[in-house]
Design a binder for these strands. Structure first.
Lengths: 340, 340
DNA sequence: CTGAAAGCGCTTACAG
DNA sequence: CTGAAAGCGCTTACAG
């Protein structure tokens, strides 16, 4: 079905049919109606290749990731995909798998495919080299920050997330808050630790154990570090963990040590990795990064850039606290009624 | 940069330039060399929209999923993406999120975008209604089987996977093998249970506890069911679990019951969900579904179909056993030397 | 308000 | 072996 078929059925020229369907004002109402009718009857969909050839726009954006399989890519991708759908755009996906040859190859491929813009999805939220000079269309960086401040980066708000967790624990009257998290070389780990300390400091509190415990992002490390922390500071009554896996291990270790979660020690995770957080014993209070929204915000800004409204700099998108049982609402006062 | 620029630089006509670059035999060697040179100099990439407009092929395939966020979509997607890269094709991604309106909308969108073919990714491996009649290009179903046997479905081999697990346990001299798995309404759960029973039967063994324990796909269920199974059959010396989360819960419960894994009870999971299986205590022996390969096989068959070699029916792609510590190599004979 | 013409960037008969 | 012409499906000045 081509526009020519529609035009013929409607008894007009191809150019008139085009204008009618594209809402140009110079078409007579009756004509427009006839053309629309014909188009509907033939289930006509304009060929996007032909349109793209003329307009130079393909209504397609390229999403370049470094590690699709990682924990953070998927939710962002979902958000992007969904937001693009609302704009009648599609996403072409390329996973460079951390390999710079692949990355350059994909950039060339996507540019050759005439994508209207790029979203570059980082695998960690550390700084990464800008790729913008290789790309002739607008680019938005998501999750991982571009090293070039002239680029636009949409990031998760690590400090804000840590603050949410810290304030939640303090509101529960916890006074001895420890921190078990990932490697110190991750900016996310450092930023969250700093924010936690700041909030504690503002409340006149010190970090339980004196220093954050930096290790792996694993359950194993959570188990191990929980032992260390309880030994170092037996009064600890709350632990803020760098991710949900660590928190899971912490809960397990605390339980094995005879400490009740949350009555004796409240535990907060990070990431809200559903399958883990909800299935933990007890289910984890945690910080959701709102990664889908991150993807949606990226699309929003990319669309603006395509319309000529470019933004630069860093946008930190807030997370949210998800309260589950690992931080009980009434500390040290387990209600028999509730438990029954 | 257009072909016209290349032609001008090489001093030939556009049509000759086109033939030279496309390897047509009728071009003089010297001319071809000059054109290639010019193209390289200008970093010329033919406009795929123009090519697509002529050829009717876009070198793009549509990937329609029902739940991208699920545990199984991502690996398949990775395999598809990678395999397509080798064929110089791209993937456009659409997630219907289980909504049939969205699904139909996306099908229309992708068809309008002139994708050369579809891959339809199921969220569960149960039968699903065929969508092929709405799609005028070749379709391959992956992970979830199409209800129409005239379609091609590439599936994980559940029976084969269960057999691998069962044979592994039997080779370790286990005689009392129990099965804790997901809801009976999942075909995967039923198929695996049946295959396990068959293997046990062939070895003259019965299922420990008499019946498979069907419940949720969760750690919580694993913990609970492990208690049940040990009570029902205290001699149980191996448990094959329907997924890694269940296996994780089983390991935890067994340990709390004072049963050593694997010395007293060997445990096998399913899915090889890396972050979980490797971080479990002990690390899980499990079945990897080879989902990336599933995606690659789908692309292979789709490419063949695009070349006119269509296949139909069901292909079951084998998984593989990944041995970790939850099935020790020397049952009931823990070596002090090894442990030290 | 409508339609004939040119053109987006390329490929492919066709003529020379 | 090379090039002028037509055409893929559409849009957009331009003329009427």
């Amino acid at each position: 079905m081509t526009l020519a078929d529609v035009a013929k059925l409607a008894g007009v020229s191809v150019s008139t049919a085009s204008k009618a369907l594209n809402g140009k004002p110079e078409v007579a109402d009756a004509t427009r109606a006839r053309v629309r009718h014909a188009a509907a009857e033939l289930a006509f969909h304009p060929n996007p290749l032909a349109r793209g050839l003329i307009s130079g726009r393909t209504r397609t954006i390229g999403l370049l990731t470094d590690e699709l399989g990682g924990r953070f890519s998927m939710p962002v991708l979902l958000g992007v995909e969904n937001a693009l759908g609302n704009e009648e755009m599609s996403v072409v996906l390329c996973d460079a798998r951390g390999d710079s040859i692949r990355r350059q190859h994909y950039i060339r491929t996507l540019v050759a495919r005439q994508v209207d813009g790029f979203i570059i999805l980082g695998e960690s939220n550390d700084l990464r080299p800008s790729l913008t000079r290789d790309i002739p269309v607008p680019v938005v960086y998501v999750y991982g920050e571009s090293g070039d401040p002239g680029d636009l980066s949409i990031l998760a708000d690590d400090e804000g997330g840590a603050r949410l967790a810290a304030e939640h624990l303090i509101s529960l009257q916890r006074r001895h808050v420890g921190h078990i998290t990932g490697p110190v070389l991750y900016r996310a780990a450092r930023d969250r630790a700093a924010a936690l300390r700041q909030v504690l400091h503002d409340s006149g509190l010190d970090l339980a154990g004196g220093e954050p415990l930096h290790g792996e992002w694993s359950r194993r490390w959570g188990r191990h570090a929980a032992h260390m922390l309880v030994t170092a500071d037996p009064d600890v009554d709350a632990i803020f963990c760098g991710n949900d896996q660590i928190a899971d291990g912490v809960c397990e270790a605390l339980t094995n040590l005879g400490r009740h979660v949350p009555d004796d020690v409240a535990v907060v995770g990070y990431d809200n990795w559903e399958t883990l957080a909800a299935d933990c014993r007890p289910p984890l209070t945690t910080i959701d990064l709102n990664l889908e929204q991150l993807g949606a915000v990226a699309v929003e800004h990319l669309s603006a850039a395509l319309d000529g409204h470019r933004t630069t700099g860093v946008i930190r998108h807030p997370g949210r606290l998800v309260v589950r049982e690992s931080t009980g609402p009434s500390p040290r006062r387990p209600s028999a009624a509730v438990r029954a």
